[in-house]
C-alpha cells in the first residue's frame, strides 16, 4: 500500500522532511441514510455503489490524488449515522482529523435539523476552529421531494462559516455509461477540501518512506490563523 516516493535524496536540506505521501484524513458525519457511504464510495471508487448497507461503526476508504504535482492520499472515514454509535464508538476516529464533511439529505428536513447536533459533536471531540469543515446537501437529483431549500442551507452554511455543496452521489447526468466523474460535484467536494488542506502548509502526518515502523506525525503549524481563506474557520464551534 505504501506509495513511497523517492526518499533517499534529501541529504542537503536539513529542515525539509523527506518527500512522502501526505495523508489527509477526513471524517464524514451526518444522520443515518443521508448517503455518507455513497459519497465516500463515489469519490474513492469513481462510481455509485449498487447497494449500500447501514454502516456499523466506522468504514474506511482512501484514494490517491495528485495536486499541483504532489501525490496526496485522501483517507475518508465513513461513520455510522445512528446516534448510539457516536458516543462510545466513533470518538476514536476523530483523532488527528484534518477536515470534517457534514452531510444532510435535501429530501429529509430532519437530517438538516440535526446539523447543529453534529457540529456540537465535533466541538465535543475538540476539533479546533482551524479544521476545515464543509457542508454537503446530498440527493439533489430527487428534485421533486426537496425539503431543504438551497437558500436555507446557504444561510446555515454562512452562519457556520462553511462552504455549501449540493450534490447527488447518484447523479442522473451520468447516462448510465459508468463514467460518473465530473458529472456532479462529488469530485469537486473532496478535491476542494484537499486543496484547502494542502494550502495549510506544514500540516500533518505523512507516511514513512519505507512502509515500516511507526507513522511519523509532524503536527504543528496548523494553527496559522493567517491563512483563513473565506469562510473556512468555523467561528461558532
Amino acid at each position: 500500500m505504501a506509495e513511497s516516493g523517492s526518499s533517499a535524496e534529501l541529504s542537503g536540506s536539513l529542515t525539509l522532511p523527506p518527500p512522502r505521501t501526505r495523508i489527509f484524513k477526513i471524517i464524514v458525519i451526518g444522520d443515518s441514510g443521508v448517503g455518507k457511504t455513497c459519497l465516500t464510495y463515489r469519490f474513492c471508487a469513481g462510481k455509485f455503489p449498487e447497494k449500500t448497507e447501514a454502516t456499523i461503526g466506522v468504514d474506511f476508504r482512501e484514494r490517491l490524488v495528485e495536486i499541483d504535482g504532489e501525490k496526496i492520499k485522501i483517507q475518508l472515514w465513513d461513520t455510522a449515522g445512528q446516534e448510539r454509535f457516536r458516543k462510545s464508538m466513533v470518538q476514536h476516529y476523530y483523532r488527528n482529523v484534518h477536515a470534517v464533511v457534514f452531510v444532510y439529505d435535501v429530501t429529509n428536513a430532519a437530517s438538516f435539523r440535526s446539523l447543529p447536533a453534529w457540529i456540537e459533536e465535533c466541538k465535543q471531540h475538540a476539533l479546533g476552529t482551524e479544521v476545515p469543515r464543509i457542508l454537503v446537501g446530498n440527493k439533489c437529483d430527487l428534485q421533486d421531494s426537496v425539503q431543504v431549500g438551497t437558500d436555507v442551507a446557504q444561510q446555515f452554511a454562512d452562519a457556520h462559516s462553511m462552504p455549501l455543496f449540493e450534490t447527488s452521489a447518484k447523479s442522473p447526468n451520468s447516462l448510465g455509461d459508468g463514467n460518473y466523474r465530473n458529472s456532479d460535484h462529488v469530485e469537486a467536494i473532496f478535491m476542494t477540501v484537499a486543496h484547502k488542506l494542502k494550502s495549510q502548509k506544514p500540516l500533518v502526518l505523512s507516511q514513512p518512506p519505507e512502509g515500516s515502523g511507526g507513522t511519523v506525525i509532524l503536527s504543528g503549524g496548523r494553527n496559522d490563523g493567517g491563512d483563513g481563506g473565506k469562510g473556512w474557520s468555523c467561528s461558532s464551534c
Partner: peptide, 13 residues
C-alpha cells in the same frame, strides 16, 4: 501491514 491505524483497521475490517 503498515503499523498505522487506518491501514490496520482497513485490513482487519
Amino acid at each position: 501491514c503498515e503499523c498505522d491505524m487506518a491501514m490496520v483497521h482497513h485490513l482487519l475490517s
